[in-house]
Design a protein around this nucleic acid. Structure first.
Lengths: 342, 342
DNA sequence: AACGTTATCGGGAACGTTGCCGAATTTTAA
DNA sequence: TTAAAATTCGGCAACGTTCCCGATAACGTT
C-alpha cells in the first residue's frame, strides 16, 4: 500500500534484489540496459531508499542530534538555524532535543538520541548540568560530540563558543569608561563555563581600571523572567550604577524589572546585555549589547561535528574555537549627561 | 563495543532471543525466574531496545515530524514548545524541519519525513506554498496530518489556528474606536488562509463602522525585515493613520521602519501587531498586539495528531479548531491626545 | 582443448526485534 | 493410567538494504 521497495522493483522486473540495489548505486557490474530499466522503473514509481533499513544495516543514520536548553530562545534558535544549514548542505538531518535546563531531561534526551543512532551530538549544556560523565561515557564509546556555547572544561571535546572573556571585558570597560563604578553582574548558574569566562572578563576590566571588585554585585539567576525579578531587586539594594546581564533572558528580565521599578536608564543605571535579540534597538531605551554570532557558532559547530563524524578530524584532538563578539553601544549605556543619539 | 542487544542477553544467559524479548515485555508465558534473570541482566548492562529495528519491523517510528517555515521565530518556537511537551508526555519524539518559506524546501522535507517513517505530520505551510497536492497525496496514503497556524482550505484535514477573524476584527475595531480611519494592513502572502481570515476580520470591522475599504492600504510582504521596509515606505504614500501588521516579523519590521523614518507612534500613526513576541511591552513605544496562544496551538495540534495516529479519531473527519486570541492595548495604539499610561 | 577472464546476475546472511508456530516437559483431569 | 492441557521455551520468518560469495555464460589465450 505504501512506499515502493527494492523488492518490488526486483519482482516487477524479474531481477534479484541485489541486482536492483547495485543498479541503483550505478555499480559497474550491471548491464547498462538493466540499469536503465531499473532506474526508469524506480523513477516512475518514485522509489526512495528506506533510511531506517539503512540505519539498521550500517549502524549509522545520517542524523545529528542537537540538544539545547530551550528552543524558544533567540540565541539557540539562531544557532539551530546555522546547524541546520550546514547539516542540510552536507546531507545530514537534524533532530532537536530540549533539555529544559534540567540535568535529568538532558540525560534522558541524550540517551534517546544515542538509541536513535545519531551519528554525532551537538550539545549546549543545560543550566542544571554540572556533571558531564554521561557525555564522557559516550565519548569513550567513540560517539563524536561537539559542545557549543555552554561548554565544559571537564570534557575533552571540541568546543565552539563566543569569546566570552573579551566580550565581557569590552562591556565592562565600556561601562567604566562611561563613568560607572558599581557595575552589577547578572549571570547564569556559576558552574557553567561561559559564566566563569564572562566573570573573568568582568573582573579583568575592573582590575585594569582600578575599580574594586565587590562580590555583592554578582548574582546568579535561573532563566525565567520570574526568577530574574527578585534577583534584580536584590541587587538594587547594593546601589549599583550599571547592570551587565550575561544572557538573553537575563537582560530582558533586567530591563523589565528596572522599568517596572521606574528606574531611569541610562540616567540612574546603565544597562548592557550579553545577548542575541534582534530587537535590541527597538527597545526602550535601545539596549546596548554584546552580540554573539549565534548563527556562525552553530555553523562552525556543525562543521566540526560532521568533520569528526566523517573522520576528517582526529577524535582525540580536543579544541576550542572562540568566535568574536561585537559590542554595540546604544542608548541604555550612555554616560549621564550625554545627549541621546538620533 | 557499543550498545547491548537482545542477542547479547540471549547468548549470555543461554536463552533464545524470543525468550528474552518476551521476558522484557513481561509476557505471561515466561518463567518468573527467567524473567528476573533477563531483566536484571538488561538493567545491569543498560539495555535499550533499538528504536530503528522496531521502526523497520513495525513500520512506525514513534516520531512525529514538524514542518515550520522558520524556527527562529517566536511564534513557531513557542508552538514547537507546545508540541514537544505533548509529544514527550505521550511517548513520541519530534523531528523538526524548516521549510524556509520555500515550497521546494517544504516538498523535500516532507518527503524526507515520510521516508523516515514519521507516524504523523504537523505542518505550518510555507509562504511559498499555494499547492497542497503533496500533502493530499500523503493523506490519501493514510498518513495522519494536522495543519496549524498556516492552514489551507484545499486540504480536508484537521486544522488548528488562532481565531484570526475575531482577532483582526478586534484590532481593527480598536483602531477605529481610537479615531483612526485610514488603517493600513500589512499581510503575509495572500493565498495563505490566515491572511484571508485576517483580511476578512479587518474588512468586517471597517464595514461595521462605515469606514471605506481602500485596496491601496493593503500590502503583502515577504518575511524578512529587508522586505518589509520598502513595503511600509510604499504604504506611507497612502497617508495612513494606523498600521495593522499581521505577523511577528512584519510588526517588528514595521516598527523599525517607522522609527527610522522618524514617524511618531502613536501620534502620527497607530501600530498594532498580530504577533507573539514576549518583549512587546519593552519596545519603544510598547506595542499593542493581538496575541496568539502559540503554545496552546502547538499543544492542541499535537494532541489531535497523536489521537489520529492512535486511531482515537476518525481519519475522515476534518475539523477546525480556533483558539481565542487576546488583544493587549499598549501605547503604540493610543488615541492622539491621550496621556501615556504609566 | 583446456583454462583463465570478464561480464552479469542470483543467493544468502546480517543488522535488532517481534510474533507465529511448534516442541518439550510437566501438571491436571478423566 | 492415559489423554488433555498447561507451562515454558526455541526456531524461523519478516521488515529493507547491502555485501560477500558464487554461478553461469561468453569470450579470449595458450
Amino acid at each position: 500500500m505504501d512506499a515502493i521497495t527494492i523488492k518490488d522493483i526486483a519482482r516487477a522486473l524479474n531481477l534479484s534484489t541485489s541486482t536492483v540495489s547495485r543498479a541503483l548505486r550505478d555499480s559497474y557490474e550491471i548491464n547498462p540496459e538493466t540499469k536503465r530499466l531499473v532506474v526508469e522503473y524506480a523513477e516512475r514509481f518514485n522509489y526512495r531508499p528506506n533510511p531506517i533499513a539503512l540505519s539498521l544495516k550500517e549502524n549509522r543514520s545520517r542524523v545529528i542530534g542537537v540538544v539545547v536548553p530551550q528552543i524558544a530562545n533567540n540565541y539557540f534558535s539562531q544557532a539551530i538555524n546555522g546547524i541546520d544549514a550546514i547539516a542540510y548542505s552536507r546531507g545530514y538531518q537534524v533532530i532537536i532535543f530540549q533539555s529544559h535546563e534540567s540535568y535529568e531531561r538532558e540525560l534522558l534526551t541524550v540517551q534517546q538520541a544515542v538509541a536513535r543512532k545519531v551519528d554525532g551530538l551537538l550539545i549546549s549544556l543545560s543550566g542544571g548540568t554540572s556533571d558531564v560523565s554521561h557525555l564522557r561515557d559516550l565519548q569513550e564509546r567513540k560517539l563524536p560530540i561537539v559542545l557549543f556555547d555552554r561548554v565544559s572544561k571537564e570534557l575533552d571535546s571540541f568546543c565552539v563558543t563566543a569569546d566570552n572573556f573579551t566580550g565581557a571585558f569590552a562591556a565592562t570597560e565600556h561601562l567604566i569608561q562611561s563613568g560607572r563604578r558599581r557595575i552589577a553582574h547578572l549571570a547564569i548558574p556559576s558552574y557553567i563555563s561561559i559564566t566563569q569566562e564572562r566573570l573573568a572578563g568582568y573582573r579583568a576590566a575592573l582590575e585594569k581600571y582600578g575599580v574594586p571588585y565587590d562580590e555583592n554585585l554578582i548574582r546568579y539567576s535561573e532563566f525565567s523572567q520570574n526568577d530574574v525579578e527578585p534577583v534584580v531587586n536584590d541587587l538594587l539594594n547594593q546601589s549599583p550604577d550599571a547592570f551587565f546581564a550575561a544572557g538573553d533572558r537575563l537582560a530582558l528580565g533586567c530591563l523589565a524589572t528596572l522599568k517596572k521599578r521606574g528606574i531611569a536608564i541610562p540616567e540612574t543605571v546603565s544597562l548592557i546585555g550579553f545577548t542575541n535579540t534582534p530587537v535590541a534597538d527597538l527597545l526602550a531605551p535601545p539596549m546596548s549589547t554584546v552580540e554573539q554570532p549565534a548563527l556562525d557558532i552553530g555553523q562552525v559547530a556543525a562543521e566540526q561535528l560532521i568533520n569528526l563524524i566523517e573522520g576528517k578530524q582526529k577524535l582525540t584532538q580536543p579544541g576550542m574555537i572562540r568566535m568574536p563578539t561585537r559590542m554595540i553601544v546604544r542608548e541604555s549605556s550612555q554616560p549621564v549627561g550625554v545627549s541621546k543619539p538620533v
